[in-house]
Amino acid sequence: MIDIFTKFSGQLFVGLGWTILSSVIALFFSLIIGTVFAIMEVVPSKIARFIGRAYVEILRNIPLLVITMFFYLVIPKYVMKINGFTAGTIGLTLYTSAFIAETIRSGIQSVSGGQMEGARSTGMTYWQAMRYIILPQAFKIVIPPLGNQFVNLVKNSSVLAFVAGFDLMYQANSIASTTFDQINSYLVVGVLYLIITLPLSYYMQYLEKKLA
Protein backbone atom coordinates (compact mmCIF):
# COMPACT_ATOMS: atom_id res chain seq x y z
CA MET A 1 0.00 0.00 0.00
CA ILE A 2 2.83 2.37 0.90
CA ASP A 3 4.65 1.31 -2.28
CA ILE A 4 1.73 2.27 -4.45
CA PHE A 5 1.39 5.54 -2.64
CA THR A 6 5.04 6.54 -3.02
CA LYS A 7 5.34 5.31 -6.57
CA PHE A 8 2.18 7.00 -7.81
CA SER A 9 1.94 9.94 -5.42
CA GLY A 10 2.06 12.43 -8.30
CA GLN A 11 -0.84 10.77 -10.06
CA LEU A 12 -2.75 10.36 -6.78
CA PHE A 13 -2.39 14.02 -5.84
CA VAL A 14 -3.59 15.05 -9.27
CA GLY A 15 -6.63 12.82 -8.66
CA LEU A 16 -7.13 14.25 -5.19
CA GLY A 17 -6.99 17.75 -6.66
CA TRP A 18 -9.62 17.04 -9.31
CA THR A 19 -11.84 15.29 -6.76
CA ILE A 20 -11.65 18.24 -4.38
CA LEU A 21 -12.16 20.79 -7.15
CA SER A 22 -15.19 18.97 -8.49
CA SER A 23 -16.63 18.54 -4.99
CA VAL A 24 -16.18 22.20 -4.09
CA ILE A 25 -17.76 23.44 -7.32
CA ALA A 26 -20.63 20.96 -7.02
CA LEU A 27 -21.15 21.81 -3.35
CA PHE A 28 -21.35 25.53 -4.04
CA PHE A 29 -23.76 25.30 -6.96
CA SER A 30 -25.88 22.46 -5.61
CA LEU A 31 -26.46 24.50 -2.45
CA ILE A 32 -27.66 27.48 -4.49
CA ILE A 33 -29.73 25.44 -6.94
CA GLY A 34 -31.06 23.25 -4.14
CA THR A 35 -32.18 26.29 -2.15
CA VAL A 36 -33.91 27.81 -5.17
CA PHE A 37 -35.86 24.61 -5.85
CA ALA A 38 -36.61 24.11 -2.14
CA ILE A 39 -38.22 27.56 -2.11
CA MET A 40 -40.09 26.79 -5.33
CA GLU A 41 -41.54 23.75 -3.60
CA VAL A 42 -43.10 25.80 -0.80
CA VAL A 43 -44.20 29.07 -2.45
CA PRO A 44 -47.92 29.77 -2.91
CA SER A 45 -47.71 29.58 -6.73
CA LYS A 46 -48.96 26.21 -7.96
CA ILE A 47 -46.88 26.34 -11.15
CA ALA A 48 -43.68 27.01 -9.23
CA ARG A 49 -44.48 24.20 -6.81
CA PHE A 50 -45.07 21.83 -9.71
CA ILE A 51 -41.77 22.75 -11.37
CA GLY A 52 -39.90 22.44 -8.08
CA ARG A 53 -41.48 19.08 -7.33
CA ALA A 54 -40.82 17.77 -10.84
CA TYR A 55 -37.17 18.83 -10.75
CA VAL A 56 -36.54 17.11 -7.44
CA GLU A 57 -38.44 13.93 -8.27
CA ILE A 58 -36.81 13.49 -11.66
CA LEU A 59 -33.22 14.17 -10.66
CA ARG A 60 -33.13 12.24 -7.43
CA ASN A 61 -34.76 9.19 -8.98
CA ILE A 62 -32.30 8.79 -11.85
CA PRO A 63 -28.92 7.19 -11.16
CA LEU A 64 -26.12 9.73 -11.00
CA LEU A 65 -24.25 7.81 -13.67
CA VAL A 66 -27.12 8.21 -16.13
CA ILE A 67 -27.30 11.98 -15.56
CA THR A 68 -23.54 12.22 -15.98
CA MET A 69 -23.50 10.14 -19.15
CA PHE A 70 -26.20 12.40 -20.55
CA PHE A 71 -23.95 15.41 -20.12
CA TYR A 72 -20.89 13.54 -21.34
CA LEU A 73 -22.36 11.94 -24.44
CA VAL A 74 -25.57 13.70 -25.44
CA ILE A 75 -24.89 17.37 -24.74
CA PRO A 76 -21.57 17.47 -26.68
CA LYS A 77 -23.27 15.86 -29.65
CA TYR A 78 -26.15 18.31 -29.91
CA VAL A 79 -25.39 21.39 -27.83
CA MET A 80 -21.81 22.21 -26.94
CA LYS A 81 -18.51 20.52 -26.28
CA ILE A 82 -17.92 19.72 -22.63
CA ASN A 83 -15.19 17.48 -21.29
CA GLY A 84 -15.50 14.63 -18.81
CA PHE A 85 -14.64 16.71 -15.77
CA THR A 86 -17.25 19.33 -16.62
CA ALA A 87 -19.89 16.75 -17.52
CA GLY A 88 -19.24 14.84 -14.30
CA THR A 89 -19.31 17.96 -12.16
CA ILE A 90 -22.55 19.16 -13.75
CA GLY A 91 -24.12 15.74 -13.21
CA LEU A 92 -22.93 15.72 -9.61
CA THR A 93 -24.24 19.24 -9.02
CA LEU A 94 -27.72 18.59 -10.40
CA TYR A 95 -28.07 15.21 -8.72
CA THR A 96 -26.96 16.56 -5.34
CA SER A 97 -29.08 19.72 -5.71
CA ALA A 98 -32.23 17.56 -5.82
CA PHE A 99 -31.35 15.99 -2.47
CA ILE A 100 -30.36 19.34 -1.00
CA ALA A 101 -33.65 20.84 -2.21
CA GLU A 102 -35.52 18.06 -0.47
CA THR A 103 -33.54 18.58 2.74
CA ILE A 104 -34.01 22.34 2.77
CA ARG A 105 -37.70 22.05 1.88
CA SER A 106 -38.29 19.89 4.94
CA GLY A 107 -36.29 22.43 6.96
CA ILE A 108 -38.47 25.29 5.75
CA GLN A 109 -41.62 23.33 6.50
CA SER A 110 -40.46 22.54 10.00
CA VAL A 111 -40.23 26.25 10.83
CA SER A 112 -43.62 26.97 12.43
CA GLY A 113 -46.26 28.76 10.39
CA GLY A 114 -46.45 31.37 13.16
CA GLN A 115 -43.04 32.70 12.14
CA MET A 116 -44.33 33.48 8.66
CA GLU A 117 -47.55 35.01 10.00
CA GLY A 118 -45.63 37.09 12.52
CA ALA A 119 -43.42 38.47 9.78
CA ARG A 120 -46.21 39.03 7.25
CA SER A 121 -48.35 40.82 9.84
CA THR A 122 -45.72 43.55 10.13
CA GLY A 123 -45.98 44.23 6.39
CA MET A 124 -42.99 42.20 5.21
CA THR A 125 -43.37 40.66 1.77
CA TYR A 126 -43.30 36.89 1.39
CA TRP A 127 -39.71 37.10 0.13
CA GLN A 128 -38.56 39.34 2.97
CA ALA A 129 -40.07 36.93 5.48
CA MET A 130 -38.32 34.04 3.68
CA ARG A 131 -34.99 35.78 3.62
CA TYR A 132 -34.86 37.26 7.10
CA ILE A 133 -36.93 34.86 9.17
CA ILE A 134 -37.71 31.49 7.60
CA LEU A 135 -34.53 30.54 5.71
CA PRO A 136 -32.06 31.38 8.50
CA GLN A 137 -34.06 29.16 10.86
CA ALA A 138 -34.45 26.44 8.23
CA PHE A 139 -30.72 26.32 7.49
CA LYS A 140 -29.95 25.86 11.14
CA ILE A 141 -32.33 22.91 11.32
CA VAL A 142 -30.92 21.22 8.23
CA ILE A 143 -27.21 21.41 9.05
CA PRO A 144 -26.93 17.75 10.12
CA PRO A 145 -28.72 16.27 7.09
CA LEU A 146 -26.94 18.77 4.85
CA GLY A 147 -23.63 17.50 6.22
CA ASN A 148 -24.60 14.00 5.11
CA GLN A 149 -25.36 15.32 1.65
CA PHE A 150 -21.93 16.95 1.45
CA VAL A 151 -20.17 13.73 2.43
CA ASN A 152 -22.26 11.84 -0.12
CA LEU A 153 -21.32 14.41 -2.69
CA VAL A 154 -17.60 13.83 -2.18
CA LYS A 155 -18.08 10.08 -2.45
CA ASN A 156 -20.34 10.42 -5.48
CA SER A 157 -17.69 12.48 -7.24
CA SER A 158 -16.15 9.11 -8.10
CA VAL A 159 -18.63 9.14 -10.99
CA LEU A 160 -16.00 11.27 -12.75
CA ALA A 161 -13.96 8.10 -13.26
CA PHE A 162 -16.56 6.86 -15.73
CA VAL A 163 -16.22 9.90 -17.94
CA ALA A 164 -12.44 10.28 -17.70
CA GLY A 165 -12.62 13.15 -15.21
CA PHE A 166 -9.12 12.44 -13.85
CA ASP A 167 -10.39 12.20 -10.26
CA LEU A 168 -9.13 9.87 -7.51
CA MET A 169 -11.22 6.93 -8.70
CA TYR A 170 -10.02 7.39 -12.27
CA GLN A 171 -6.42 7.32 -11.06
CA ALA A 172 -7.17 4.24 -8.97
CA ASN A 173 -8.48 2.40 -12.04
CA SER A 174 -5.46 3.47 -13.99
CA ILE A 175 -2.97 2.50 -11.27
CA ALA A 176 -4.74 -0.80 -10.68
CA SER A 177 -4.57 -1.67 -14.36
CA THR A 178 -0.89 -0.78 -14.66
CA THR A 179 0.24 -2.55 -11.49
CA PHE A 180 -2.41 -5.30 -11.49
CA ASP A 181 -2.49 -4.70 -7.74
CA GLN A 182 -6.18 -3.97 -7.43
CA ILE A 183 -6.46 -4.32 -3.67
CA ASN A 184 -3.74 -1.89 -2.70
CA SER A 185 -4.61 0.60 -5.42
CA TYR A 186 -8.17 0.94 -4.20
CA LEU A 187 -7.05 0.84 -0.58
CA VAL A 188 -4.83 3.89 -1.06
CA VAL A 189 -7.64 5.73 -2.79
CA GLY A 190 -10.11 4.72 -0.07
CA VAL A 191 -7.83 6.26 2.53
CA LEU A 192 -7.48 9.42 0.43
CA TYR A 193 -11.29 9.73 0.27
CA LEU A 194 -11.40 9.37 4.06
CA ILE A 195 -8.92 12.22 4.33
CA ILE A 196 -11.49 14.46 2.66
CA THR A 197 -14.70 13.08 4.14
CA LEU A 198 -13.75 12.53 7.78
CA PRO A 199 -12.70 16.15 8.48
CA LEU A 200 -15.83 17.25 6.62
CA SER A 201 -18.12 15.18 8.82
CA TYR A 202 -16.31 16.28 11.96
CA TYR A 203 -16.63 19.89 10.88
CA MET A 204 -20.36 19.46 10.30
CA GLN A 205 -20.72 17.87 13.76
CA TYR A 206 -18.82 20.79 15.26
CA LEU A 207 -21.02 23.28 13.41
CA GLU A 208 -24.12 21.49 14.59
CA LYS A 209 -22.99 21.67 18.22
CA LYS A 210 -21.92 25.28 17.93
CA LEU A 211 -25.24 26.43 16.50
CA ALA A 212 -27.43 24.24 18.69
Binding site: Y72, L73, K77, K81, N83, G84, F162, A164
Partner: peptide
Protein backbone atom coordinates in the same frame (compact mmCIF):
# COMPACT_ATOMS: atom_id res chain seq x y z
CA UNK B 1 -13.06 4.97 -20.38
CA UNK B 2 -14.63 1.89 -18.86
CA UNK B 3 -15.37 -0.22 -21.92
CA UNK B 4 -15.46 -0.12 -25.72
CA UNK B 5 -19.12 0.82 -25.95
CA UNK B 6 -18.51 3.88 -23.82
CA UNK B 7 -15.31 4.70 -25.65
CA UNK B 8 -17.13 4.52 -28.99
CA UNK B 9 -19.94 6.74 -27.69
CA UNK B 10 -17.39 9.23 -26.42
CA UNK B 11 -15.74 9.31 -29.85
CA UNK B 12 -19.11 9.92 -31.48
CA UNK B 13 -19.88 12.72 -29.01
CA UNK B 14 -16.65 14.45 -29.91
CA UNK B 15 -14.98 13.78 -26.56
Amino acid sequence: LQDYAQAMNALKSGQ
